[in-house]
């Protein structure tokens, strides 16, 4: 089952121009099996999500992208997002308490004309980031990162034995589905998504390039 695990919509993320219903239609058109809305610091209302999913007969899931001192984290299964800028360790405790999953989003995203790989970052030094000790997986395939940045994330994933997920980080319709997470088993509910993320039965991939 192919899911874009990292999507922002204008419904809850002011920086996005992506309409949720247009996102669903586009996801169907390009052949995704589901999308996961991960807004900045805000969670979708479960009923709204279900209504939308039923209307379009399309699997929809929800997580949240949280800003921390150590970068952006994708959180699944946490109903109350701590206000402000939480410390990753505190967030980890909260996620564990809720039985959720925590993923480092686009860990090596760089700038317009250069990235961390261009600054001669070695794999050894890249692996030392504190946050990698706290997460369940890395977003090794990000639609907003360069191939070099994603390659470095994959190498770190392999060396640290962290699982890899993929997500587009789409803010516009043309960005949807650039990267995806391919799950080995069908995901029918939010609980299934979290269970499968914990089990590790998935891989990250590029989808729409």
């Amino acid at each position: 089952m192919i899911i874009d695990l990292h999507v922002h919509t204008k419904a809850l993320s002011p920086c996005s121009s992506l309409d949720p219903e247009e996102a669903i239609q586009e996801a169907k058109r390009i052949g995704l099996d589901g999308i996961c809305f991960t807004e900045h610091g805000k969670l979708w209302d479960a009923q709204d999500l279900e209504r939308l999913s039923n209307k379009w007969h399309f699997p929809l899931f929800c997580g949240v992208e949280v800003e921390t001192r150590d970068g952006h984290l994708l959180i699944f299964g946490l109903d109350n997002i701590p206000p402000g800028i939480p410390a990753p360790a505190d967030l980890r405790k909260a996620v564990d308490g809720a039985g959720g999953v925590m993923i480092a989003a686009h860990p090596f995203r760089g700038f317009l004309l250069f990235g961390f790989a261009d600054l001669s970052m070695t794999l050894e030094s890249a692996c030392k980031r504190r946050v990698f000790q706290l997460v369940d997986a890395l977003e090794t395939h990000s639609g907003k990162s360069t191939k070099k940045e994603n390659d470095l994330a994959q190498a770190v994933g392999q060396k640290t034995s962290l699982k890899s997920v993929g997500g587009s980080d789409a803010h516009t319709i043309s960005e949807l589905g650039r990267c995806v997470t391919v799950f080995a088993h069908p995901i029918k509910s939010q609980a299934d998504l979290i269970a499968e993320l914990k089990r590790g039965n998935f891989r990250a991939d590029y989808f729409r390039r």
Partner: peptide, 16 residues
Amino acid sequence: VGLRIGSGIIKLVNNF
């Protein structure tokens, strides 16, 4: 101190 210059830095600095 300890913050990495990268995505989200504007929000972090303004917040702290």
